[in-house]
């Protein structure tokens, strides 16, 4: 009996360790693969030039259009998302919201979080056709900002919830209104946490491909106008991988490397910024 139990426990413990190694190993494998295939293909021209004639046949040029495009898309979307998220997060945390409403809003945000990005893309494009818009930077920004919104609200709520009660009370007792307290005192107090949330959302926005596929389109030109199509890194990866030329496919790996460096850089920066940030999924 006892030996059987001990064996069972050891057996499962070994399985657990193997699983954990497997999960962490897959992370290493992904990073390693992209690094190994992307690094040789990466050169300065790739980062500093837009595609020239014949780029997609393996001739000269780079992915500057996609890098700048992605920064514009995700940057714009993040600005819009901050404008929308900050009031919502402050409202949920600092205002006397009825229980039911609060739960409903949070559930909606969670569900929004879970909505597949291809659905965002399809709906966004449908609405854009309805409004007579073409695929454009603006369209991409709007769709991406909705994609970023739930992440940002969640992160900001978490940051705001850490403000000490006493601080709020002293602010109120000095005669500040709730609005002044929220937007001056609380925002200043929780700035690192808010920035963490913003960076996380930016990272999600810059990496998403399916939502910008229809709404932002793709172009070889550098972004110039809100109303023109714009290139993006994820789609640069996708399209270049789809060509039959190994030289172009290599550039897809390089683009993926650029993308992953950006995203992981953001993720690590945000983690360093707020050591106390804990990802609290359940609420």
């Amino acid at each position: 009996m006892l030996i059987k139990q001990k064996l069972e426990e050891s057996f499962f413990k070994i399985l657990m360790v193997i699983s954990t190694i497997f999960v962490l190993g897959s992370l290493l494998l992904i990073l390693g693969t992209v690094l190994w295939r992307g690094l040789p293909a990466l050169d300065l021209a790739m980062l500093t030039q837009a595609p020239q004639g014949g780029y997609y046949l393996g001739k000269e040029g780079g992915i500057l259009n996609a890098i700048l495009g992605s920064l514009c898309l995700a940057g714009g979307a993040t600005i819009v998302a901050v404008i929308l998220s900050l009031p919502i997060a402050l409202y949920l945390q600092l205002y006397p919201v009825p229980h039911f409403t609060k739960n409903w809003i949070r559930l909606s945000l969670d569900i929004l979080w879970g909505t597949p990005s291809i659905v965002y893309g399809a709906i966004g494009f449908t609405l854009m056709i309805y409004l007579g818009m073409r695929a454009s930077l603006l369209g991409g920004i709007i769709v991406l900002s909705l994609l970023e919104l739930p992440i940002m609200v969640r992160g900001m709520e978490e940051a705001v919830s850490m403000v000490p009660k006493a601080l709020l009370e002293s602010s109120y007792s000095l005669g500040a209104t709730r609005f002044e307290t929220a937007f001056k005192v609380v925002v200043r107090q929780t700035l690192p946490g808010l920035i963490t949330a913003i960076l996380l959302a930016f990272g999600r926005g810059i990496g998403d491909a399916a939502s910008v596929l229809f709404t932002a389109g793709y172009t070889d030109n550098l972004p110039t106008s809100l109303l023109r199509p714009v290139a993006s890194l994820p789609l640069a990866v996708f399209f270049q991988l789809g060509t039959p030329f190994p030289a172009v496919q290599d550039r897809a790996y390089a683009a993926a490397l650029v993308l992953i460096v950006l995203v992981l850089g953001l993720s690590i920066t945000s983690r360093l910024l707020s050591t106390r940030f804990t990802k609290n999924i359940i609420r």
Binding site: L27, I30, T33, R204, I206, G207, Y253, L259, L264, S267
Partner: peptide, 19 residues
């Protein structure tokens, strides 16, 4: 580290899949 896995863009997963 597991969170990092969540942050990797899906096209990068795709690249990894292909390669």
């Amino acid at each position: 580290l597991i969170d990092l896995l969540a942050g990797i863009p899906s096209v990068v997963y795709g690249i990894w899949g292909v390669l």
